[in-house]
Amino acid sequence: MIPRSFEYLRPSTLQEAVQLLDKYEESKILAGGQSLIALMKLRLASPKYIIDITRIPGLSYVKEEGNKILIGPLTTHDTVENSPIIRNKCPILSEAASRIGDQQIRNRGTIAGTLCHADPSADVPTTFLALDGEVVAMGKDGERVIKAKDFFQDFFTTALNPNEVVKEVRVPVLPPKTGTAYIKHARREGDFAIVAVAAIITLDENNVCKSASISLGSVGPTPLRAVEVENALVGKKLTDEVIVAASELADRGISPPSDIHGSAEYRAEMAKVFTKRAIRLALSRIGG
């Protein structure tokens, strides 16, 4: 349980980190290290160069700007969970962060780290997709914004180029009459989800569903949007019959994996159950 040998590099700016990424093949950014180090110790991942960005100043922050919340890449899950801005303006992200692993992990793990790791069972990526969040990627030739829907490409694979780092994570300030819920089915608190659901529901002044954003975790190689469920909600009064009927569509377009905690068939069924519960919970949280 000791990693293979590697070179340790510690840049003092993000620009320098990008240069190092560009210079060294098989290099990897170290932020919170909560997934990377575990994989290295198992020798399942063996980057030749570890670029430790944790000492770069100014990368941990939460700010509100216009209708967006800007989050520094090194902001820890604990900070995200407890940030008053996030709790008030985008509570689902705080809720998702609170469900990650345990307190020690939340003290170290970072928001950009979990997004870049792109584990489809992880809590934040699923929520980030439902939020239509954005990642600001910084590369040798400048910056670009990547939308959540484009960001997750496969297991552990994102749209970042090998020589890009995440400079900032952005999520929207949620509009009024919005209710959110992130829930997961796991055998132990803090485990990777068997199925996770993030639901964001906005009603109009007549309490008709104006928008619905539902994403599912642990049912495919990336978090997935339950588009058919969303479509079955928008434009309707969300009676329980509507919610139940819509949730039945949650297994459309998913390709769940199997493991000892849940077969693919079970996960498909749980996707429906937890979609229903997440929508109900989100709806119940919409304030007057």
């Binding site: 055998r187 132990r188 608190e189 803090g190 000892i260 905690h261």
Partner: peptide, 10 residues
């Protein structure tokens, strides 16, 4: 991760 040793929460 798979041998589910319960914690105080369980």
């Amino acid at each position: 991760m798979d041998y589910l040793f319960p914690t105080a929460l369980e």
